[in-house]
Amino acid sequence: MNRFACGAVILAALIGVCDQCAWGGPPPARRLTHNGHFKQRPVWSPDGKVLAFSQHRGGKIGLVFLEGEPPRERPVAATIPQYDACWSPDGKRIAYTRVGQTPGQGNLDVYLAQADGSEPVKFAGDEGKLSHEEFPAWSPDGKRIAYMSTYEGNQEIYIADIDGRNRQRVTNDPALDSHPTWSPDSRRLAFATNRWGDFEIAEVDADGQNLERLTKSPRLDDYPVYSPDGKRLAFVSNRDGNSEIYVLTRDSLSVVNVTENPAIDSYPAWTPTGDLTFVSNRDDGFDIYTIPRPNERLDSVPVKAPL
């Protein structure tokens, strides 16, 4: 590395540190659940009144809704594993991963159902050979669903109309492409990919064009989610040695660790009003927490720099 490049790296690192300093530390988090069972992928309903998440309990995994004040849990009755739900923009339906069984191993498909879990119908599944379809993300305009699938022998991102037709492959790379999320205007998809080494966050047009790398860290970056205004993405990273929630400002690509906790913090989700929800084991077991409007504080962070 020449002297100029070395200086640039040091400057970028210092500016990044400045960003973190200006953030001033995370606000107190409100704890929404208390049972300590492992949880994953919390997702708020569009009206912000119901939180859907997946919970591991007794060696099983299933969907749970959290609603009311104080929050009460309402598990979705099911005899087979189903998890990783998302909401339709009108809040009337959900999409989720459902496990059917094949001889010897499970078979993941994407299903749609009414918001209470009733009337399940298959949205995406095998086509002639075993493949895994999972982690659906409903576009904000309500027209399409993105998901990850191994239809063609590698894990890629696909989108299809909500009737399951007009399927398109968005990514095409021998790497693993994972966990898609839609931009609020339904034009772009962010996802995690290891095409540059370990998992990084990337963004691409819904038709697969204009791929852009958003993060460059020596560690894992995963589970991106756009803020409601589209200006930022929250994601998980272990770049500081343990799993934390970071927020990336889309224009500048600067990032800030908004959880700063020695526990494992993962699976970020935004409320419709811009609060940030996540799963953490900071109180021993895994529960769901939320911190108020990090974007408002991040707007006051003066220095922006790529990282």
Partner: peptide
Amino acid sequence: VEPVEDGGDGGWDMHDRNFSILQDR
């Protein structure tokens, strides 16, 4: 042997979702 996603009780037999399960749990 199977993970919960495959109807098991959380084993290490990750013919699929190897990476999600490893890093998440």
